[in-house]
Simulated assay, not measured.
Amino acid sequence: MDQPSDAPGTDRRALAAAALTVVLWASAFVSIRSSAAHYGPGALALGRLLTASLALGCVLLVKRVPLPSRKAWPGILASGVLWFGLYMVALNWGEQKVDAGTAAMIVNIGPIIIALLSGWLLKEGFPPMLLAGMGVSFAGAAVVGLSTSTGGAASVTGVLLCLVAALTYGAGVVSQKPALSHASPLQVTTYGCFVGTAVTLPFAGQLLTDLPRAPLNATLNMVYLGLFPTALAFTTWTYALSRTTAGKMGATTYAVPAAVVLIAWAVLDEVPGWLTLLGGAICLAGVAVSRRRPAARPARHAPPGHEEPPIHTGS
């Protein structure tokens, strides 16, 4: 199932879907703060994925969507295990061991991994503007991370877990891209979510223990995480990914730190410092640079007296 990727209208739809994804993923960080204190890392991941799986499963039944083709399953399985499963557990666990600023700086190597893997494995190449923009955005993410870091000693275990999260995120995205040539974004997202839920089922006992003890607000935030940053945002992500390169989509996620700062400011009344605002602005500038197309080369003109011979097309 070939998806157009260069038509202007399609690109606008992809950008709109990517923007919605960025906003919803940024909101996830606010909800995770409220629920992570009452749910273990694995329990929170499983609860979130169960909620998303139920919602997406209902959509499949209502729309009578068939199973994906056999060629799509390797990518669906890989992204389900790596991104939906391991990434969510590793990130939840890692953020309990290190402060949010340190975690953000480490996890933000994920888009760089996406660019490297997609350039190599998916033959997307290494566009100079994309690499330059990612470098600028990573610098901005580092500024945001430094400005929000508590300055305490980082746990080696926490750093390693955040690194695992970055690696599984990058590999999961690159695994999704080929699957979208053989299945719809809804199919890739839904069945990937099912696989991730199966991977996190060993934490079912932890979830059943935490559920009756957690306050209602924490549980509602976990449900929100499943419905919006997972079910909806991962679907809009795959929709956009099917219409552009994995490298560009990875670079777009550098807008998340800036969106997190704004949402925390509006919802939690956490007034950001000037350094945090500067970092967010740098992130957005890098995303803009990464999506720029290189300037077209000027047409070559033959010197006077050296006209090109006419091209005969036949009749």
Rank of each mutant, 00 (worst) to 15 (best):
A281W: 02
W73H: 03
L44P: 06
G226H: 03
R48T: 00
A281F: 07
S5G: 15
P111Q: 04
M88F: 14
A100H: 07
Y87T: 07
R33M: 07
I114T: 13
S181Q: 13
E124H: 09
G135C: 04
L268G: 02
G314F: 02
A36P: 04
Q3H: 14
T189I: 10
I113R: 03
A115Y: 05
L262H: 01
G152I: 06
T235C: 11
L262R: 00
S149G: 15
W274A: 15
R70D: 06
A231S: 05
S155P: 02
V22D: 09
P309K: 07
V188A: 15
A218K: 08
A16H: 08
I76M: 13
A90C: 03
A258T: 06
S137A: 15
S155N: 01
P310V: 10
S27V: 10
G152Q: 09
Y239L: 14
V260F: 07
A285H: 07
L91F: 14
L225I: 02
G40F: 02
A251W: 01
L54I: 15
W120S: 15
V23Y: 05
S315I: 12
S5N: 13
W237Y: 15
A55G: 00
R300V: 15
A214T: 08
W83N: 08
K71H: 12
M1E: 10
T235K: 09
A115R: 03
A100Y: 04
R64F: 02
Q96H: 11
S175N: 00
D210T: 09
V164R: 05
Q96F: 01
V223Y: 06
I113P: 02
T168A: 02
A302P: 00
R292K: 11
A258L: 05
P41R: 02
A285I: 11
G42H: 01
S155D: 04
T200V: 12
